[in-house]
Amino acid sequence: MTNFSVFSALHHADTPLLLPNAWDHASAAALAQQGFAAIGTTSLGTAAAAGLPDGMAATRDETLLLAKRLGNGPFLLSVDAEGGFSDHPAAVAELARELAAAGAAGINLEDGRADGTLTPVDLHAAKIAAVKAATPDLFVNARTDTHWLDGPQTETSRRLDAYQQAGADCVFVPGLSDPTQIAALVKTLDVPLNILYSPSGPTVAHLGNLGVRRVSLGSLLFRTALGAAVSAATDIRADRPVRGKTPTYSEVQQLCPGVDPDLAK
């Protein structure tokens, strides 16, 4: 089986695919070391690490570079590509070709825009169709931001229907956490549903029982790591012990390919 087919199969298992999101080589390698078979990227982490804004089509180069760094890792890779960094379907399709060539098994395409509006449904569907025509095996996770923006939640079903008709392999509704609404939405879909995990929302097991087949962590791990780093620095400044588990120098070195464990000390 190809990476594409294996990745697709993970969305049709008895339990939902829990997809953690990395922002660099070390975070991806550390997650893979814990047995995660598939790892996504986080657009916020990718952008923030480069000092660029998220969601404003500013990180095409950084996203592709990260995919090239991670594409040959011991895990299946799904890349968060915002809205494809273009409103021209052909340009989005070209990006998809480059990501697939870099080793990505999947791509995440969102319809939310930086100004708080949604991409016209026909345009986002055209992006999806162009990607599937250019790279038929690449797994397309089509995201709608109707539950993250004010007012348009009634558009959710219409948009998801258009996206799955355009060829999306999975649909993603971040911000949706109500169990009743999730269960009702699952019944209307022909493709798997992806939900963004929320610490205040249903557990992964509960989401699986509702019919959700993929649970993403989004930027949560990146934000948690950033917070932990700042907390450690302020604890030290205040003469308090550093909380939490800290990997050793050697353990981090061993995440990097080509490092002799005997020299990583």
Score class of each variant (00 low, 15 high):
residue 85 F to Y: 15
residue 262 D to R: 13
residue 26 A to S: 13
residue 233 A to R: 11
residue 183 A to M: 05
residue 231 S to M: 08
residue 21 N to C: 12
residue 84 G to L: 01
residue 45 G to A: 11
residue 27 S to P: 05
residue 64 L to Q: 10
residue 83 G to N: 02
residue 35 G to C: 12
residue 65 L to E: 13
residue 183 A to I: 06
residue 230 V to H: 06
residue 63 T to D: 06
residue 82 E to N: 02
residue 146 T to P: 07
residue 168 A to R: 00
residue 137 D to Y: 01
residue 157 S to K: 14
residue 185 L to I: 10
residue 206 H to G: 09
residue 47 A to Q: 08
residue 173 V to D: 06
residue 139 F to Y: 09
residue 50 A to Y: 00
residue 246 T to P: 04
residue 113 R to H: 09
residue 229 A to M: 15
residue 141 N to A: 11
residue 159 R to E: 03
residue 218 G to L: 04
residue 262 D to S: 14
residue 47 A to R: 01
residue 181 Q to R: 15
residue 131 V to C: 10
residue 81 A to I: 02
residue 10 L to T: 02
residue 94 E to A: 11
residue 99 L to T: 05
residue 254 Q to M: 14
residue 56 M to Q: 12
residue 2 T to G: 14
residue 104 A to D: 07
residue 254 Q to G: 05
residue 235 D to H: 14
residue 153 Q to N: 06
residue 110 E to M: 11
residue 66 L to A: 07
residue 149 L to D: 00
residue 239 D to A: 12
residue 112 G to P: 04
residue 222 F to I: 02
residue 180 T to S: 15
residue 221 L to W: 00
residue 17 L to A: 12
residue 108 N to A: 02
residue 125 A to D: 01
residue 159 R to L: 04
residue 37 A to T: 15
residue 154 T to F: 10
residue 132 K to M: 08
residue 231 S to Y: 07
residue 63 T to I: 09
residue 158 R to N: 15
residue 193 L to F: 02
residue 46 T to G: 01
residue 203 T to A: 14
residue 155 E to G: 10
residue 6 V to S: 06
residue 234 T to E: 15
residue 136 P to F: 03
residue 265 K to R: 13
residue 234 T to I: 13
residue 37 A to K: 09
residue 29 A to V: 04
residue 4 F to K: 12
residue 113 R to E: 11
residue 220 L to K: 09
residue 91 A to G: 02
residue 167 G to C: 04
residue 46 T to M: 04
residue 210 L to E: 00
residue 244 G to K: 02
residue 115 D to V: 10
residue 140 V to R: 00
residue 76 L to G: 03
residue 174 P to Q: 00
residue 32 A to W: 01
residue 53 P to M: 09
residue 139 F to D: 01
residue 239 D to F: 05
residue 34 Q to Y: 06
residue 48 A to K: 12
residue 83 G to A: 04
residue 228 A to T: 04
residue 77 L to E: 04
residue 195 I to D: 03
residue 155 E to T: 03
residue 34 Q to N: 05
residue 142 A to V: 11
residue 66 L to R: 00
residue 22 A to P: 01
residue 197 Y to T: 04
residue 145 D to E: 15
residue 242 V to A: 12
residue 63 T to C: 13
residue 217 L to N: 08
residue 139 F to R: 02
residue 127 K to H: 14
residue 106 G to T: 10
residue 121 V to I: 13
residue 100 A to K: 03
residue 73 G to N: 02
residue 236 I to E: 15
residue 212 V to N: 02
residue 246 T to G: 07
residue 121 V to H: 07
residue 119 T to D: 07
residue 220 L to F: 14
